[in-house]
Computed example of a mutant assay.
Amino acid sequence: MPELPEVETTRRGVAPFLSEQIIRGLVLRESRLRWPVDPGLDRRLGGARVTAVNRRAKYLLVETDRGCLLWHLGMSGSLRIITDGRAPEKHDHVDLVLENGHCLRFNDPRRFGFLLWTEAPLAEHPRLAALGPEPLSEDFSAERLYARSRGRRAPVKSFIMDSATVVGVGNIYASEALFLAGIHPRRPAGRIALARYRQLAARIKQVLAAAIEQGGTTLRDFRDSDGMPGYFSQSLNVYDRAGEPCPQCAAAIRRAVIAQRATYFCPRCQR
């Protein structure tokens, strides 16, 4: 599933092509996505000007002078800018067509992505209102993690993957940040001291910033706006490396399941 770095990579790829462009309309080839696409969306979008392309958590926000499209890539979705008029492929379900002849094309084999339209303030949208801070923003801090974790018995890995705690720390990035911070993923969130949360917050920022810089993690389905895979998987320390030597101490990396998610850690380095 595309995570925050993959969505941010996509945003950076498509934003220069969309910003300040006039939308001609929407071509909908398949409306049966995670939620049915509004049949009146073509009419709402025709003639609108794109004012900004932003991101909140894993939502791509195509903001216009009339309202905003919230685009979610789901499990297997990808967005690409089409400039040569090429014919759509099998799973190309939606085209956002611009007046200059280019289009933003949405491909989603599993059809678990979606796009929603809103004219209300984004902060009030039900998909966004309860989200925690962005991990690379000043609003995200060790002090916030520490205060929110008091009394929590849930494993720290589940705690930092909760979007109400902080957005965008997906399964891969949680495993990597906990490894770099030396914290065992099963340790109860409420039993971690502020000093260790300072280390964890710094490592979360480090891992996500590096993943964005390198174009996201190469996953089975992810492609960026140019159709190319991300390359951060080349830098993974523990994720999907069960049985391989820890890069710090050479102990065998272990795999466990926490909250139904595969988790990887070093039994020596993480306490």
Rank of each mutant, 00 (worst) to 15 (best):
D92R: 06
A202H: 09
A256R: 10
L73P: 06
A181D: 00
M75N: 09
F159I: 00
T217W: 00
N107C: 14
G168F: 12
A251R: 13
N54I: 05
R32Q: 15
G215W: 02
A123S: 14
F114C: 11
V156Y: 05
V169G: 01
I253M: 07
E119V: 08
A252P: 14
R49M: 09
H102C: 14
D221P: 04
A193H: 06
A142W: 04
S235T: 07
P121G: 05
P16S: 02
R255M: 11
A15V: 05
A242S: 12
V14K: 08
P229W: 06
E8C: 06
R127W: 07
A130S: 12
P109S: 08
D226Q: 15
F232C: 10
I81C: 10
L208F: 00
A181F: 11
D84R: 09
S31K: 13
P245L: 07
G13K: 02
E3D: 08
G77I: 12
R254T: 00
E244Y: 01
D226W: 11
F114M: 15
P109L: 06
R203N: 11
P126D: 05
A256P: 04
N171S: 11
Y59M: 04
D162W: 00
A15G: 05
I258S: 02
V14G: 03
I183S: 03
V50I: 15
R187Y: 02
S163D: 15
Y239M: 00
A15I: 01
G101N: 08
E20G: 14
A193G: 10
A181P: 04
C249T: 11
I212H: 03
P188S: 02
T263N: 06
A174C: 11
V207L: 09
R86D: 14
Y197T: 02
A211R: 04
R111G: 07
V97M: 14
A57T: 10
E3W: 11
L200H: 00
C266N: 10
D108F: 13
K205M: 02
Q234G: 08
R43I: 10
G132F: 00
A252E: 13
L219D: 03
L41D: 01
L26G: 07
N107H: 14
P245Q: 07
I160H: 06
C269I: 06
A147G: 05
G74E: 12
R186T: 09
L128T: 07
R187T: 14
K58N: 10
L145E: 02
L122Y: 04
H93Y: 08
V37G: 08
I82F: 01
R66H: 12
L98D: 07
Q199L: 15
P39G: 10
Q270R: 11
D221G: 13
C266L: 01
F17C: 07
G190P: 01
G47M: 03
L131I: 13
